[in-house]
Design a protein around this nucleic acid. Structure first.
Length: 287
DNA sequence: TAAACGTGGAA
DNA sequence: TTTCCAAGTTT
């Protein structure tokens, strides 16, 4: 199935800015942080702003972490901004300002997990790594395992399968990784897959089995309304827009339940996303 | 291992 | 209107 998939990719791959040669490893890394749990369409404008403002890791490392949080805008999960800033600092201190090539060194950076380390090594440096994101896992679940959806958490069996399917040739392996991910993102989607356009529809185990509905344990869904996360989001939105420290009283206006509001603010402070400056005032972190 | 962690667009 | 979903990591 490799040929059809990589051929399809050559014809249909999106022209995304982080796929252009000028993006470099830093561009790839920034995009990978932003794309964690966030759609491409929302990442695009913020990515352009970040790369224009901080074209190298050293440029971001020289800024206050709060500026990263501010520039993160409404992408969500703002701890990613903090971790990307910390990763830039680590790259500056430990790697002379260059994004490391070694998977183990990438993995040691803040905010870089199994997926992101493999993605940067593969996409930026053309190395041979099994890149297992939600798209690839879904493609393999369907094409190989004959199931509609992969398990909730990545399993050893999935990693083994991904390694087995990885072409031996390094450059081909990197293309395969990008191609399987793109296939999952564009055609083999979660909700309404476009099997009629899929280059491996005739070999897909799930289709051949009659496209059976998901049976295993229910897929985890998350609530949001009324949670601490929603309160944190409202608090941080005020602080992102503020140019000066914000009085407690202003923050109090975003949520009426005082216990939950205090808990959310404490959480933001302990996460390093918010800095108390005394006198009951708060701001995005300067250090 | 499971829960926490944002946000907004599409179905 | 509600639910689902989006290139995960950390604890």
């Amino acid at each position: 199935m490799h040929g059809p998939v990589t051929d399809w990719f050559d014809q249909h791959a999106r022209d995304l800015p982080w796929r252009r040669p000028e993006a470099g490893a830093w561009g790839v890394m920034v995009s990978e942080f932003m794309l964690q749990q966030t759609p491409v369409s929302r990442v695009l404008p913020v990515y352009e702003q970040w790369l224009a403002r901080w074209p190298r890791p050293a440029d971001l490392a020289a800024e206050a972490p709060g500026e990263a949080v501010r520039a993160w805008g409404r992408l969500g999960y703002p701890r990613r901004a903090l971790r990307l800033h910390a990763a830039a600092s680590a790259i500056q201190e430990r790697h002379g300002g260059d994004v490391p090539r070694e998977h183990a060194q990438l993995l040691a950076l803040p905010g870089v997990g199994e997926y992101t380390a493999a993605a940067v090594a593969s996409f930026a440096y053309g190395q041979r790594h099994a890149v297992l994101d939600t798209n690839v896992r879904r493609v393999f679940a369907r094409a190989v395992a004959g199931r509609q959806f992969p398990p909730n958490a990545t399993t050893a069996a999935e990693r083994k399968l991904a390694r087995q399917l990885l072409p031996e040739d390094e450059k081909l392996a990197a293309r395969w990784a990008a191609a399987t991910m793109e296939l999952g993102a564009l055609l083999c989607t979660a909700r309404t897959p476009e099997c009629h356009r899929c280059p491996i529809a005739s070999q897909c185990a799930w289709r051949l089995a009659g496209s059976p509905a998901h049976d295993g344990p229910p897929r985890r869904t998350q609530t949001y309304a009324g949670t601490d996360r929603q309160v944190r989001g409202k608090l941080l939105a005020v602080l992102r827009e503020a140019v000066a420290p914000v009085p407690q009283q202003v923050l109090d206006a975003v949520w009426d339940e005082p216990v939950q509001r205090a808990r959310a603010l404490d959480g933001l402070v302990s996460d390093g996303l918010v800095e108390p400056v005394g006198g009951g005032r708060y701001r995005l972190p300067l250090s």
